[in-house]
Design a protein around this nucleic acid. Structure first.
Lengths: 213, 213
DNA sequence: TTGCAAATGTGAGGATTACTCATATTTTCA
DNA sequence: TGAAAATATGAGTAATCCTCACATTTGCAA
C-alpha cells in the first residue's frame, strides 16, 4: 500500500474530480480526514457519519474535506480501496504457491478464517461492505476485487485440474469466492455459535466444489 | 396475501408507529401510495425516490403519506413484505410434497430459475433487496424470510436423511438458501451469459450439498 | 530575497429533502 | 343528528450535503 492517500474518486458514479494532494501538508491532512472518517464509521456506521463531524474530528474545515473528496461516498470509497488492496496482497501470497489438493485445502481454510475474523473484529470493514449493494461505485469495486481474487483461485484450479474447461473453472472460482463473502457476511449477522457453524459448512461445501470439480 | 395493505411498520428501527387504515377510502389511498412508490422505485431506485413525488403520483398530500408510513423506509419495507409473503407461499408449495432425491432436484432447480427470472424482470425486487444490507430493518426481514424458507428445505432434508444430525441439516439448508440469494444477486449484476453460468454452477453445488449431505 | 502563480484553507450560506403539526374535512355510530 | 374518531392538507422546520468567493500558504523562477 502506498503512503500517498490518493483520494481516488470512484469512476463515473461520483460527481466531479478533485485535486490530489501534492504537498506534504495536504497529504497529512487527507490522512487525518480518512482516520476521522474511519473512527466515526466504527462508532456509528457510514450512513450516520456526518461530513461536519469528519471535518471537526480531523481538525480541518468542511471546505478542505471537499477539496479532496468530491462527496461523502468518495471517503468511504477511499477507505474501501485500501482494504481491498491490503487483502488482495494477502490472498495472492496465500495462494501463490499452492500446487496440490492438501495445500489448497489448508490455504483456503485459512483465508476464510482470516476473512471471518476480520469481519468480526473490524466494524469499519463490516460497515463498508454492508453498504456495498446500495452504492453502485462500491458494488463495482467489490466485484472487481472479487474477480481479481477469484483469478488467484482459478490459477490454482488450472494447476490442479489441467484438463478441465477453463471457463468452468473460472466460473467455479468466482462463484465460490462470492459465496464466501456472502457466507461471512451472513455469519457475522447471526449469533457467534451459528456463525461458526455456517462458516464451517461453507468451507466444506466450497472445498468439495473446488477439489472434486 | 391480504388485501388490506397493513403499513406494518418495521420493528424497533423505525420511528413512531402510524395509524392503520380502517376505512375503505384510506385503504385505497394507501394502495395508491404503494403503487406510486413501486413505480418510482422501478424508474429510479428507492434511494432516489422522493417522498414528494410519491405523494404527487399517488394524488395525495405529503401529510397523508406520513399518516400511514412513519418514514421513507417503511414504504420500502411494506413493499418488501409483500414480496416475501408471495414468495414464501410459492416456495412452500413447491417443496411441500418432495419426498425423494429426484423430486428435490427438480423442485429446487425450478425454484432457483423462478427466483433468477424474477430478479431479472422485476426492478423493484432488485432494488429492494439490494438495499437489504444497509437497512437494518430490511436485513432482519430478509433473514427472517430466509430462515422461514430454509425451514421448508430442512423439512425435506430430514425426510430424505432421517439419520442425519438435525442441526447440521438446518445449517446446510440455511446456508444453501442464503448462497442462492447471493448467487442470484451476483448473476444479475454481470452480463447475462455469465449470469446463466453462475446460476447453473450454483445449482450444481447446492444440489450436491443437499443430496449428498 | 522577492514576487507571483499554484496549491491549499475557510466557513457562511444555498439547495434539497425528510418529516411535523395545527387545522380542516369526512366518516362512523350511538 | 351531533360529536368523536378518522382522515386529509401543505406550509413550515430541521438537518445536512455541498458550493463558492475569498484568504492564506507554498513552491520556485528571476
Amino acid at each position: 500500500m502506498e503512503d500517498t492517500a490518493a483520494p481516488a474518486s470512484a469512476p463515473e458514479q461520483v460527481a466531479s474530480p478533485r485535486r490530489a494532494p501534492t504537498q506534504q501538508r495536504s497529504r497529512e491532512r487527507v490522512e487525518r480526514m480518512l482516520a476521522a472518517a474511519s473512527a466515526l464509521i466504527a462508532q456509528q456506521g457510514s450512513d450516520a457519519m456526518r461530513m461536519g463531524e469528519v471535518a471537526e474530528r480531523a481538525g480541518v474545515s468542511i471546505g478542505s474535506l471537499y477539496q479532496f473528496f468530491p462527496d461523502k461516498r468518495a471517503i468511504v470509497w477511499a477507505l474501501a480501496e485500501r482494504y481491498t488492496a491490503e487483502s488482495q496482497a494477502c490472498i495472492s501470497s496465500a495462494l501463490k504457491d499452492v500446487s496440490d489438493a492438501e495445500g489448497l485445502r489448508q490455504a483456503f481454510s485459512e483465508l476464510v478464517d482470516i476473512y471471518y475474523r476480520l469481519f468480526l473484529a473490524e466494524p469499519v470493514m463490516r460497515d463498508i461492505w454492508s453498504g456495498t449493494q446500495a452504492d453502485k461505485a462500491l458494488r463495482q469495486l467489490e466485484l472487481a476485487d472479487s474477480r481479481a481474487n477469484a483469478e488467484f483461485l482459478t490459477a490454482v484450479l488450472k494447476r490442479l485440474q489441467p484438463g478441465a474447461d477453463p471457463v468452468a473453472l473460472e466460473t467455479t472460482a468466482f462463484l465460490v469466492w462470492q459465496m464466501g463473502e456472502a457466507a461471512v457476511r451472513l455469519a457475522i449477522s447471526v449469533d457467534r455459535q451459528e456463525g461458526d457453524r455456517l462458516v464451517a459448512a461453507y468451507k466444506r461445501m466450497a472445498l468439495r466444489e473446488l477439489l472434486e470439480g
